[in-house]
């Protein structure tokens, strides 16, 4: 277990029914770094991501073996409430999914459930979260308009702001820019770079350049196995495994 690891994945196997989606995954995620999970579709990287905040609990017929430690505590221990885990480990999804509510209510939704806050505290939190997600200037005058009217890129930053409002320790991002145009993508990448000062970020991406640009560490998965996990610079210049190199250079996948 690394000194500054915040999440330790220990020998995790994961099944959808009889299908084994992850095999013997063992890896540590370090605090305040951006870790990219890459690999071809179906390699299990999104599944692993969703294991980290127990989102796979929502799918019937799944089974987890092994343990995942978050701040030293096994989040799959029987006495752990997944709701508590999800408050500390936020998530941003592939497709922007704001609630069909106002921008303000999108942000305040989580905090209102979790804390007993005064109106002015919530106002502050909304402003602070939107500023963190670099969206405040664009929406400060339309906080009471539906979030559905925002552009895709704005919606995704709203979703990031919504996750940040819960003051999580870790932010999981499942291909957060795959549905966005290049300009919105650049904004989100800038934002990720900024956020890693305060958060640990784990991001699944299909975009090799993106992984190379924004991550500190990169893990390559193939058919449910962790093939190689190292510093991003190393993975993209001199990977140890031929397989990784083939994938990164586009020879397969």
């Amino acid at each position: 277990m690394g000194v500054n690891a915040i999440i330790n994945v220990n020998d995790v196997n994961f099944y959808y029914g009889n299908f084994k989606a992850l095999t013997d995954i063992k890896m540590d995620f370090k605090k305040n770094l951006v870790t990219a999970l890459i690999g071809p579709s179906g390699c299990g990287k999104s599944t692993l991501l969703r294991l980290l905040n127990r989102m796979n609990d929502l799918i019937d017929g799944t089974k987890v073996e092994g343990e995942i430690l978050f701040a030293g505590q096994n989040i799959y221990a029987p006495d752990v409430d997944p709701v508590e885990i999800r408050k500390k480990i936020g998530m941003v999804f592939q497709k922007p999914n704001p609630f069909p509510k106002t921008i303000y209510n999108n942000i305040s939704y989580g905090p209102k459930l979790m804390w007993n806050l005064s109106k002015s505290d919530i106002d502050d939190l909304v402003e602070q979260s939107l500023k963190q997600a670099v969206l405040w200037d664009e929406v400060k005058d339309i906080l009471n308009k539906s979030a559905m009217n925002l552009s895709g890129g704005q919606q995704q930053r709203l979703c990031i702001a919504r996750a940040l409002a819960m003051k999580p320790d870790v932010l999981l991002m499942d291909e957060p820019t795959s549905a966005l145009d290049p300009i919105s993508t650049a904004k989100i990448e800038e934002l990720i770079d900024d956020l890693k000062k305060n958060y640990t970020i784990i991001i699944v991406t299909h975009n090799m350049q993106q992984a190379a640009r924004i991550s500190d560490e990169t893990a390559f998965f193939y058919i449910g196995k962790l093939i190689e996990y190292n510093k991003t610079g190393k993975i993209f210049t001199k990977p140890d495994v031929q397989h990784t190199e083939d994938y990164i250079t586009g020879r397969f996948g």
Partner: peptide
């Protein structure tokens, strides 16, 4: 929508 809500700890 449901996943977004659960992911926020609802």
């Amino acid at each position: 929508f449901k996943e977004a809500s659960y992911a926020l700890g609802a």
